[in-house]
Amino acid sequence: MGVDLIFRIAAIGILVAVLNQLLVRSGREEQAMMTTLAGLIVVLLIIVREIAVLFDTVKTIFRLN
């Protein structure tokens, strides 16, 4: 939940972007699309867990539950 979360997401994003360019240059557009989707799903999974933690905290702080 610290700063490393942001750096991990940034690393995945940049990696996917580079891989995408690489694959597009080498003529494999579909695989480029697949890697983009894969990177997006990985980031989504990470984010969903963090957002769940965030909303639980907000619920306990503001007595929402």
Partner: peptide
């Protein structure tokens, strides 16, 4: 610039942190 969809998620993560 590269991946707008991942940028949105990174923004959400920054807000959460």
């Amino acid at each position: 610039r590269q991946k707008p969809e991942i940028a949105v998620l990174a923004g959400t993560a920054a807000g959460a942190v």
